[in-house]
Amino acid sequence: MGNAALPARVVGVVGPSGVGKDTVMEAMAAARADVVLARRVITRAAGAGGENSIGATDAEFDALVAEGSFALWWAAHGLRYGVPRKALQQAGARIVLVNLSRGVLDQARAAFEDFAVLSLTADVQTLAQRLAARGRESEAEIAARLARAGVSRPAGEDVVEVANDGALAATVAAALEALQPVRA
C-alpha cells in the first residue's frame, strides 16, 4: 500500500512563548513535502502575532463552531483558537503540524486517532532574548512568560521533547527523526 492511503499523523506542537514553535514548524514543512502546517482560526486579526493564522470575529468563530468546522477548539489568553477539519486533510500529508496549547492536549488525544506531541524547549536565557527581540511585550509581560516557561511540561508516551537552543537545522532534524524515524 502506498503512502497516499495512510492517514496523516497529527502532531501538536507545544512549548513556552519564545521557544520558536512557528519557526520550527515552518522549517519542518520546508524540509519535507509530506509535512504540512494546519492554519488555526484565531479571534484576532489574521497574521497578528507573527503566526500565519486565519482571523475571525467572535461571531464568525461562533458560526464555525456551530457548523462543526473545527476538529478541536479552545479558549486561552482572552482569545479562541480552532483547528479546521479541512486543514487536517491536505493532499500528500503524512504529518500535519498544529500549534496547540498545552491545556488542550487531552482533548487533542481524544480527537485525533494518530496523535503525537512535539514539546519544544529552550533555556531561559534563549527564551528571554527571543521574547525581547519580538518587541511585542513589556519587560513585566516577558518576566511573567518566563516564569511560566518551565511549568507544566507535557507528559505521556506520545510526547517527543526536542531542545531548540541551537541551530534550527539540528532542531528540525531531531524533531523529524523522533516523530517518524527511518525504518529499515
Rank of each mutant, 00 (worst) to 15 (best):
E113F: 10
T23D: 03
S138E: 03
G78K: 05
L118K: 02
L118Q: 01
E157H: 13
G78C: 03
A167F: 12
A167I: 15
A38F: 03
T121K: 02
Q89S: 10
A110P: 04
V160Q: 10
P154L: 12
E60F: 04
L105R: 07
R134W: 03
S119I: 06
G55A: 07
A163W: 06
E51F: 02
E161A: 14
N99T: 01
V11L: 03
D22P: 01
D114S: 11
A56F: 04
T126W: 08
A163G: 10
S69K: 15
L100Q: 04
V182W: 03
S152Q: 15
R145D: 09
T126M: 11
A87R: 11
A29R: 10
V24T: 11
V11P: 01
E60S: 06
I54M: 02
E157R: 14
D62Y: 12
A29H: 08
A33E: 03
A147D: 08
E26H: 13
S119K: 07
V182K: 08
S152Y: 15
V160K: 12
E113Q: 14
G47I: 06
R94F: 09
V36G: 03
A108F: 03
G50H: 00
D123T: 09
S138D: 02
D165R: 15
K86G: 05
A132K: 10
Q125F: 07
V159T: 04
A75C: 15
A75I: 12
R40W: 00
A27M: 05
F70W: 10
P154G: 11
E26I: 13
W74Q: 07
A132W: 05
D158L: 12
Q129W: 12
